[in-house]
Amino acid sequence: MGLLLVAAYASLAVWLWLTLAQGMFWRTDVRLPPRTAPAHWPSVAIVVPARDEAEVLPHSLPSLLTQDYPGEAEVVLVDDGSTDGTSELAVRLASEYPGLPLMVLSSPGEPPADWTGKLWALRYGIAHARRAHADEPDYLLLTDADIAHEPDSLRELVSAATSARLDLVSQMARLRVVDFWERLVVPAFVYFFAQLYPFRRINRPASRTAAAAGGCVLLRTEVAVRAGIPDSIRQAVIDDVSLARAVKDAGGRIWLGLAERVDSVRPYPRLVDLWRMVSRSAYAQLRHRPSLLSGTVAGLCLVYLVPPVALFVGLASGRAALAWAGALAWLLMAGTYLPMLRYHRRSPALAPLLPFTALLYLLMTVDSAVRHYRGRGAAWKGRTYARPGDA
């Protein structure tokens, strides 16, 4: 009982620190910075890697083709070995939604052992965009095949980049939260990400913290070349964080925030779908280190699981100090989660369930490590990626 009391007070201390000193990670008002239209609209190449995306492409590709952008822009879709007719569907959609020109390319075979499939496809698409015209595009918009953009999305991204002199502007797309498991798990995914990578800290030029949201990244071509993108991060499973770090290390200014008019259309209706999404990269996030895995499991238990246990045990045993410590920590946890639930337009009644959701993420992380050591880690759409250095 004494050990549980110590853990409860430690958890409360951590929550006080997270709430007050972790870059205000829980706030959801980090949106595109103030922007004005540039005198001359720069050229943009929109590069979309796609592997077996026929299910979502009708909901996303038309939103890119119909962008209301005053400057020169084109869409380059790289079919990464699809077997579901992704290329043919893209061509048909381009005829049904005339607007920006579309170039459909086939990725040049399977990626080499030291490349991930997405980055291999991006490399091919970026190379084509740079050599297709006499003047290479000023910016690259790297966006996933499941991301839908409002008609003014590109215009707003470019305006933000030029107004604030940013080399990378990334928006975390609003994820789909329709089915039960999506409502329970998805807002927490963004909450945990912001807790690890506070947006305000990322957006300070002097800060070493770097991250991006891979579904929507506007990148200045000159800086991409200087940072060696994507070759310099070719093995990265969590490519968005690696990309942002490479840009920042190359002296680029980066910005990350939540999107208002950029949405993911990919459904994750079952727990197994969400489990697969998280477990495929969770252990890679921990750099495949057992020590970091152990620390993460212990940390999740202390921060998220101890408060409810302390509250219920304290109430059952009549130990007021234990119950109060658990209750206050749980209250801070739920309170900092509420803004993220509001952003996703979900009920505040989900906030007290965050410990249960955290337990699910803990199990997904452990499963990610188990899959890695069984040779099935970082698997996605028929490919399994080795730990960097193992290839």
Rank of each mutant, 00 (worst) to 15 (best):
M1W: 14
L3R: 14
L3V: 08
Y9T: 08
A10V: 06
T19Q: 15
L20A: 02
Q22G: 00
F25W: 00
W26H: 07
W26R: 11
R31D: 10
P34L: 06
R35P: 01
A39Y: 00
A39V: 11
W41K: 11
A50Q: 12
R51K: 15
D52N: 13
E53I: 02
A54Y: 09
E55G: 15
V56K: 11
V56C: 11
L57A: 14
P58L: 06
P58Q: 07
Y69R: 03
G71P: 11
V76R: 10
L77V: 08
D80Y: 03
S82A: 08
T86R: 10
T86H: 05
V91A: 13
E96W: 13
S107Y: 07
P108A: 04
T116E: 04
W120A: 07
A121W: 09
R123L: 05
I126G: 06
R130D: 08
E136R: 15
P137Q: 01
T143Y: 05
D152V: 05
S163L: 00
D167G: 13
V169W: 02
R174N: 04
D179H: 06
E182Y: 06
E182S: 08
F199G: 08
F199S: 14
I202K: 02
N203D: 04
A206D: 15
R208Y: 12
A211F: 12
L218Y: 00
L219R: 03
R220Q: 07
E222K: 14
R226V: 12
A227P: 00
P230A: 03
P230S: 03
P230D: 00
D231Y: 02
I233D: 01
Q235N: 00
A236N: 03
A244C: 07
R245F: 00
K248I: 06
D249E: 13
I254M: 13
E260R: 11
S264E: 15
W275R: 10
S279Y: 06
A282Y: 14
A282I: 06
Y283T: 07
A284Q: 12
Q285D: 15
Q285I: 08
R289H: 10
G295Y: 03
V303C: 09
V309F: 13
A310Y: 04
A310W: 02
L311E: 03
F312T: 13
L315N: 01
A316L: 01
R319V: 13
R319C: 09
A321I: 04
A325S: 09
G326Q: 05
A327N: 09
M333C: 13
G335V: 12
P339K: 05
R342K: 13
Y343C: 11
R346F: 02
S347D: 08
S347L: 04
S347V: 00
A351N: 05
L354V: 02
F356I: 15
A358Y: 05
L363Q: 04
A369G: 10
R371D: 12
H372M: 13
H372Y: 15
H372R: 14
Y373T: 00
R374S: 10
G382I: 01
G382A: 00
R387I: 09
R387V: 08
P388G: 04
